[in-house]
Design a protein around this nucleic acid. Structure first.
Lengths: 322, 322
DNA sequence: GTGAAAGCGCTAACAT
DNA sequence: ATGTTAGCGCTTTCAC
């Protein structure tokens, strides 16, 4: 910038004004400066600007896995909103490991991101306390923070969606409805179990409930065990997208009514089409990011807990008779 | 840092030494400094460090869409390699728009990223010349740069894969093989057309070749037109993952042998399973990022053009008889 | 083993 | 309309 200034025969500040489009520069001078910038191939050093202004024009996004279709859709929505605010997105995958989540968040903070969007992997977020106090806004998405941390939260209606799934199967005549959920330590899995239980009421049979990581071997064993019961399930509710796919593989040809939590591409092309409770990952990302920019903009109102609706999409598998 | 120094009763520089783990600090002093850091909740300002050192420990990644399964897999691979080098990843979606690609790249450059990984949307990359000259390494992935730009490139064997797909269908007795490709202006689409033509040899019939964006209405019209010919195709080769899925939807129940470029989740669960030419998005990302870090590390050897193999996965749809 | 001073490239505040 | 000065928080250099 100094070189540009001397090349254009003006002071540093004038170059700064031109670069930032600030008013109060004579058009002729401005043009001269622009020429100098062009011929020297100058481009402003954002790091220095950041250091001075305190704003990085960057937000940090921690998700479970940037390659997961659910989270990558959310990622895209975050990016699209960020770009309208002139912000870039630093993203990282926690891989469902609390330590990695923490490390990513703290790294983002040391880079002085303007705000954070976090899909938490762990349930202890006390490490965030000092950053929040220091004024870095954070929004939790998909899952709430651990106890004692008061931040904005954007969640899907997990329990309601699960209840709707079960209600749909009940309405189609099923009474023996199994639930395959993810590890109960994961918030969403626990919520969906709650919704399942509420909707099943007195029909609950614990032998029809299995909760663990979505591994093919494990899911196949669970299904085999349930189907070998004297009164086997006639329908199954799977607790997330990966479990749905794993269960379909495990079922092989066996036809069982099925409703899955989470929509996925090609659900309509399978035979039968897969009935799902569709979350709105793009909506989650968009709402969270808009809220984040309100906070960055200085909105210090009480923390908000937003819940987004889910919707049932009937495609055939959930309408099979018992 | 100043506060920490005075709290610990030492000079600024000593705090810096402790923070950076530099040698030459008395253990007792170091401990006192660490206590001060702890109690003040201090964390180093990376922006200032960057300003001073010139390294941002950040790389920029421009892909078509962070939400696309192919590119999000690549994104994850880039992240995983970057993290082993202590780097974070700024990612952005070009949405297949050259202007957006350019803007993202230049924004990343003005933030002084240590390196760039680009899936180009446009074919004019002269705007990168000055950045490359300034020493910012860039790796192009999936598609090569426009003319006159000499950078490292990591591509899949598009033509070879397409030829293998057609060869597979020929081996199963097909002679009337259609090709549904993406816009021919996209490098990969053009390469795959080349491979298709080479493998078809004298069997080429231009009425069986259609290239345009993967929209359901258009793909359905193309297929309908081809299937209404006096000698309709008995097989189709689709030029990318989205076209494969769109073609499957457009075909509805009609059984036609099919091989698709790009693997996708659930390809094995459809009936019949979908035979594909599988690219290795994770390999592309990993190889590109490893090469990038070699460049960042000071390797100024001649630019490399790397081609990754693809492999055919037979699942049923490509083995249907004519 | 420790510290003082200079300066990275920029912008904010205050001249002129 | 333009220029001057100070300083963002850190690392580098060199002195103690």
């Amino acid at each position: 910038m100094k070189d540009v200034a001397s090349a254009a025969g003006v002071a540093l500040k004038t170059v700064s004004r031109v670069v930032n489009g600030e008013p109060g520069v004579h058009p002729t001078t401005a043009e001269r400066v622009r020429q100098a910038i062009e011929s020297l191939g100058y481009s402003r050093n954002e790091s220095a600007r950041v250091l001075r202004q305190g704003r990085t024009a960057t937000i940090g996004l921690v998700i479970e896995d940037v390659a997961d279709p659910f989270y990558s859709g959310l990622n895209r929505a975050v990016e699209d909103v960020a770009i309208t605010h002139g912000c870039l997105v630093l993203s990282g995958s926690s891989a469902e490991e609390p330590a990695r989540e923490r490390e990513l968040v703290l790294t983002f903070c040391s880079r002085r991101v303007d705000g954070l969007i976090v899909v938490p992997a762990g349930d202890d977020h006390t490490y965030l306390r000092s950053e929040l106090d220091a004024g870095t806004p954070a929004i939790f998405v998909d899952r709430p923070p651990g106890p004692g941390i008061d931040v904005d939260t954007v969640l899907s209606d997990n329990a309601g969606g699960a209840a709707a799934a079960v209600g749909h199967l009940l309405a189609h005549g099923h009474r023996r409805i199994a639930f395959l959920g993810d590890c109960p330590s994961i918030y969403t899995a626990a919520e969906r179990l709650t919704g399942y239980r509420a909707a099943m009421g007195g029909l609950i049979d614990d032998r029809l409930v299995a909760m663990a990581a979505p591994e093919l071997v494990r899911v196949r064993a669970d299904l085999d065990r349930m189907l070998a019961l004297p009164d086997p399930p006639t329908a199954v509710f799977t607790g997330n997208g990966r479990l749905t796919v794993t269960a379909l593989r495990a079922l092989g040809g066996r036809r069982l009514a099925l409703v899955g939590f989470d929509d996925f591409e090609l659900a309509d092309l399978l035979t039968p089409g897969v009935t799902v409770i569709a979350q709105d990952p793009i909506g989650l990302g968009r709402v969270a990011t808009e809220l984040l920019f309100r906070r960055i903009g200085g909105d210090h109102g009480p923390s908000e807990q937003i819940q987004l609706p889910v919707r049932l999409i009937a495609r055939g598998s959930g309408e099979l008779p018992p």
